[in-house]
Nucleic acid binder design. Structure first.
Lengths: 193, 193
DNA sequence: GTCATTCTGGACCGTTCGGTCCGTTTCGTT
DNA sequence: AACGAAACGGACCGAACGGTCCAGAATGAC
């Protein structure tokens, strides 16, 4: 062994993730990252390779650690229906609470980079697939409990809810008006009846 | 008078719009713009002021001229219901047709710049409001024709459809899979019943 | 204590960024 | 033909970009 790291890798990655989340990839400069991560340029390149590799690792961290908590809460809600309602209500709270609303990092990546960055696109696609899978799980549970008609196609509904959440994020970013968001969420939830 | 312009301003603006649409604001360089617009740097600055002003003008052009045709077709569809269905089906066609799918420029702007660029945010907000207003018009028409229950709140539905279109664009960008998009659109349209 | 290892700060690199400036050209007016 | 006005091409600008490199400091192993 030799001289140990003076910084925590995951902590630095979290800081980088927050910067990319707030500013996007292109608008984030090395300087922004170094300031937020509080390390030197050589440490960043030794540890993370490049700005782009760091970005990909930040996506991985978001999809992994950063999302785990929400996912666990989502899947262990009292009922499938409550999981869904809770998730959408939470978006409204987040959007109308702190300003500016940063939305979903994976979705931001999809919008900015999916067309030009295959590695980012692949990760985003996987993240969306996971969202959809989780929706499908709670939809089936809700159907089993009679909260959603069993006649509905669970996968189609899951696809719809995933897309609806995306739309809500966009709407919230452009105009975080609670009344508007409530209208949208109410209509989305009615589609489950 | 004096020496006339050798280029057409609107034509150049259209070219700039296409570049911004394809690459986003930050990822677009002056050089990209000059190449696409086929004019010199001094002409660009004389005519449009700066990259940022050009960007704002491109948004204006998109919301104005570029959208007019679709809007006219949308508002003059045989029925309100058909206008809505046609609009969503068209998104699917566009997304599954040419690759890569660039989505809605106003929405791209919202995602990339709404948090950091007040002037862009203002334009995007106005564009979304207009989308919503147009949806509301055709919804009311559909309600009058008995295609959508009169009991539904037209404004809430319009907000929902606007948001749903955003979500569809995001989904299409990340994964332009026709089957997925069809599921989503079907569910959206069922929400109108 | 010595050594090997590796982390760190900062100097440095070429490139590209958005933007300015100016001399020249080209045109309409008179 | 002469003039004024505007458009043009391109040289030029400082700053910031992402990235490399190296000297020195700090550490664990022995």
């Amino acid at each position: 062994m030799s001289r140990p790291r003076e910084f925590n890798v995951d902590q630095a990655l979290d800081a980088a993730l927050d910067v990319f989340w707030a500013k996007g990839y292109e608008a984030t400069s090395l300087c922004d990252l170094l300031d937020a991560m509080d390390l030197s340029k050589s440490s960043l390149y030794d540890t993370f390779g490049s700005k782009h590799e760091l970005y990909l690792k930040a996506i991985d961290r978001y999809v992994g650690e950063r999302t785990e908590g929400h996912e666990r809460a989502f899947l262990s809600a009292p009922s499938g229906r409550q999981a869904i309602e809770g998730a959408f209500r939470q978006i409204i709270e987040d959007a109308t609470g702190k300003t500016p609303y940063q939305g979903c990092f994976a979705m931001n990546c999809a919008m900015e980079r999916a067309q030009s960055d295959d590695e980012a696109a692949e990760r985003v696609k996987a993240a969306f697939k996971r969202y959809q899978r989780n929706y499908e799980i709670v939809i089936r549970r809700a159907q089993a409990a009679g909260e959603i008609p069993a006649s509905k196609d669970a996968r189609a509904l899951a696809r719809f809810l995933t897309s609806s959440a995306h739309g809500l994020h966009v709407t919230a970013k452009a105009n975080p008006d609670r009344e508007v968001l409530e209208d949208i969420v109410s209509t989305i939830l009615e589609a489950l009846d």
